[in-house]
């Protein structure tokens, strides 16, 4: 109860192909995150799953049943919107119960579900308030509560944290993770923030320009990116890409090294370079080093490192942790 299959889904707006054939299977109870840069089609894909948008071709199956032309309300799904989309004229309680009333759920049952959801999301003190009287984080919890009371097979989240400030974002992220653990429901979550993707997902789907670049568990994507795009998108600061020719590497076109897999030394090392800029974050230090051989590299050092712009350093990559990509950007074994 709660599996999803997307079968060759394509979507064009006029002549623009937004989705160029998406195949994907989501298992019951999985937390799947669609991640990708803006315009990659991730929101469109979510809206097609929700039934708010038509696919140009292809099918959507929920629990094995084809729902391609089923109205959104009958798909057994619930959605949490980026702007919360609460009904401004209704109280929190009515916001949560409206959909249930519409399908004629008995009042006692509605009451039970609303109470359960509001307890779970600590919304009890606000049940009789209207959305305008709530803070951004509270509104987002109401939006989640509205989804929870419907007891859907599938939860859809469309960038739910992007309108919250940084501190609230971390909290709400945690709440969503706990919610998933408690409800054990299938959840599909769209974001452009790879940190959200890494922290929440059982499975990440990386989308780019209307195609799936890679599907996998967060650490798989980090450790074994299928291509240059995924390698660059997952991980922060971004992976360094070095022209293989400069390093005299034969087969590969590009060599990738993550900033945290580079070490520095003042005396000796693989590549000699000059520090261009240093960012001291306390827990770690980011150095931007212009090397003679490999060009500009970002180096991430854990802890405090006393290097200032202009000083000379040697940078050495961890040989176990370098990635090779061919001319098409594909990862080489």
């Amino acid at each position: 109860m709660g599996s999803l299959t997307i079968d060759k889904v394509k979507k064009s707006f006029g002549r623009v192909d937004v989705l160029k054939g998406i195949d994907l299977a989501v298992n019951d109870g999985e937390f799947v995150v669609f991640v990708g840069p803006s315009g990659c089609g991730k929101s469109t894909l979510l809206r097609i799953i929700a039934g708010l948008e038509d696919s140009t071709s292809g099918r959507v199956l929920i629990d094995g049943a084809d729902v391609t032309v089923t109205p959104p309300a009958n798909r057994g799904i619930a959605m949490v919107f980026q702007t919360y989309a609460l009904y401004p004229h209704l109280t929190v309680r009515s916001n949560m119960s409206l959909g249930l009333k519409q399908i004629g759920t008995p009042a006692a049952e509605i009451d039970r579900r609303v109470t359960a959801a509001s307890t779970m999301l600590s919304l009890e003190p606000y049940l009789e308030r209207r959305p305008a009287e709530l803070s951004g984080g509270q509104r987002q919890r109401v939006a989640i509560g509205r989804a929870v009371v419907r007891e859907p097979k599938l939860f859809l989240f469309d960038e739910p944290l992007s309108n919250l400030d940084a501190a609230l974002r971390v909290n709400t992220r945690l709440e969503i993770a706990q919610l998933h653990r408690r409800l054990k429901a299938t959840m599909i979550y769209v974001t452009h923030d790879q940190v959200e993707a890494m922290t929440l997902a059982d499975k990440i789907v990386v989308l780019n320009a209307g195609r799936i670049e890679q599907v996998g568990a967060p650490m798989d994507l980090y450790n074994k990116p299928a291509n240059e795009f995924v390698a660059g998108f997952i991980g922060s600061p971004r992976m360094n890409f070095i022209d293989a020719a400069k390093l005299g590497e034969g087969q590969a076109k590009t060599i990738g090294v993550r900033p945290e897999h580079l070490t520095v030394d003042t005396g000796s090392g693989a590549w000699k370079g000059t520090v261009v800029h240093a960012e001291h974050l306390g827990a770690d230090t980011n150095l931007y080093v212009e090397t003679e051989k490999a060009g500009l590299l970002t180096v991430r050092i854990f802890g405090v490192y006393g290097a200032e712009a202009g000083s000379t350093l040697y940078v050495t990559p961890d040989p176990q942790r370098t990635y090779r990509f061919d001319a098409d950007g594909k990862a080489l074994a």
């Binding site: 708010l52 702007t83 989309a85 409206l98 519409q102």
Partner: peptide
């Protein structure tokens, strides 16, 4: 009225005339 509110109503199964009376008219 923001599209997302109307879409939320669609998700809640409030469509057609019910959508007009319950969501749009009060707004």
């Amino acid at each position: 009225i923001p599209d997302e509110v109307i879409e939320a109503a669609e998700m809640d199964g409030i469509t057609g005339m019910a959508q007009f009376w319950k969501i749009k008219l009060p707004l």
